[in-house]
Amino acid sequence: MQAVEVNNIRKTFKAGKSVVTALHDISFGVDRGELFGLIGPDGAGKTTLFRILTTLMLAGSGTASVDGFDVVKDFKQIRKRVGYMPGRFSLYQDLTVQENLSFFATLFNTSIKENYDLIKDIYIQIEKFKKRKAGALSGGMKQKLALCCALIHKPSVLFLDEPTTGVDAVSRREFWELLHNLQKQTITILVSTPYMDEAGLCDRVALVQEGRILGIDTPEAITKQFDQVLWSARAENMFKLLTDLKAQQEVNSCFPFGQEHHVTFNGSEENARLVETRLNQLGHKSVRFEKINPGIEDCFMELMEQHKKS
C-alpha cells in the first residue's frame, strides 16, 4: 500500500455558463517516506488535488486514498493523519505564536511537549517571538509557524501547498533543508511549487499543467526523456540573438534561459553549424554554441508543446 494513491480523479467547476475541468482523470501514487513534488504553474490544479486528498473537497469522479484510507468514506481517519499547510496563511492572526501552536495541538488531542522533537528545529527559529500575534509576523516567520502547526500532531502524510511561492532564493533553500530533515523522520511529504528548479530537490516529481500530468518520474529520469539535442547559444547582443535565432528555419525551438538561450534544431547537427555561420554573417559577435544537458524546465516546456500539438 502506498502512502497516497490517486485513481482517475476528475474535478470540474462551473464558471458562469461554462464548465472548467480542473483535473482530467489523473492517477499516480506516492510511496511511504517519499518527498514528492507537484511542479507546475498557477492553474495547473495543484491546490484542487491537495484539497481533495485532505478531504476538504469531493472529486467529481475517481477514487483516492491517503495512508490506506479512502478520501470519502474514511475522511475522519484521514484528517487525524495528515498535516496540511495551505498556500494562503490560514492560522489565527489574533492569537500569538504559542497560542496558535497549542490550539492545534489541543485540536488533535496532543500537546506541544509530546511532539516537540519533530518541530524543534523549526520552532527554535521563531521561539523568541512566541508572545507575538501571528498576524504581526513577517512572511518567513508565518511560514515557519504554519509548518509547526501542520506538524504538531505528528502526521504520517504532510501536504504543503506552494510553501515557497513569493519567497526569496535564500529562504527557499533553507526551507528545503527543513523538508529534507523532516523526511528523515519518515514522514511522507507532498509539496507543490511553481519553481522548476525545486524539482531536483524531490525524490520524484509530477509535472502538471492545466489539470493534466505531463510527466512523472525521478528528476534524473525526466531529463533523460528529453529526446532532442539541446544547445546553449550566447553572443554579445542576446536580445538580437533571440530574434535572429527564432527567424532561422533550422531552429525548432529557442527560449531565453538566464545568461544563455536554449536552442533545438530541426534535422541533423550540421544545421547548428550552419546557423552559427549565418549568425556571424548577420554581424553577431562572440557567437558560442555548446551542447548541454537539459534541465527540468527544458523538459517541462517540451512536454507543454507536445501536449499542445496532440
Partner: peptide
Amino acid sequence: EPTGGVDPITRREFWTLIFEAAD
C-alpha cells in the same frame, strides 16, 4: 514580481514584451 506562478513558456513571452518595451 510580475511573473510569479506563470508557466515557463509564458514567462519567457512576458520577458519578450519587456525586451520590446525597453527597445
